[in-house]
């Protein structure tokens, strides 16, 4: 119900943002293994989303990659009715999920129609292998 991965117009790959991709590599490698991990400050525990070389709260440069629950609720959402890019067929929705850890991630809903989306709806992470190079994390209705 979301991206179709048109071979001529592939979904924009996160590595396109090469200028800053090195910091994000552990995140996408975990997603490829169907795991959700986020960077956290090793000193004060502040979540670093997106990944950063330094904690903005305590200024420590020590960080660790930590598995997160993958459970959360829909914090906000939008639905495209006009396609911005050939890889995405309308209508499709994008959700902002607040994980139980308090961190918010942008993603797509799976098996939830746009008129069923509701702020506060509990969701669980699922993984979708798009092609050999790209796996995405998405969210479906909580079991």
């Amino acid at each position: 119900m979301t991206a179709t991965g048109d071979a001529e117009q592939p979904i924009p790959h996160p590595a396109l943002w090469g200028v800053l991709y090195r910091n994000s590599t552990p995140f996408w490698e975990a997603v490829k293994r169907h795991e959700l991990e986020l960077q956290r400050c090793a000193q004060c525990g502040h979540w670093l989303v997106p990944p950063r070389p330094m904690c903005p709260k305590c200024r420590s440069a020590d960080s660790e990659w930590v598995p997160v629950s993958g459970h959360g609720t829909i914090y906000s959402w939008v639905t495209y009715h006009e396609s911005p890019h050939p890889a995405f067929e309308v209508p499709y929705s994008v959700v902002l999920v607040e994980l139980d850890e308090g961190v918010r991630l942008v993603s797509n809903p799976v098996d939830i129609a746009s008129d069923e989306l509701e702020i506060g709806m509990p969701v669980d992470v699922v993984f979708e292998d798009i092609d050999d190079d790209l796996t995405l994390f998405k969210f479906t209705r909580a079991a």
């Binding site: 590595a15 800053l20 994000s24 997106p50 990944p51 890889a87 942008v106 995405l136």
Partner: peptide, 15 residues
């Protein structure tokens, strides 16, 4: 663009 976040949004069509 020298910003951290686009790689986390564009693959989901938040473009």
């Amino acid at each position: 663009a020298p910003t951290l976040h686009y790689g986390y949004f564009f693959p989901f069509g938040l473009l």
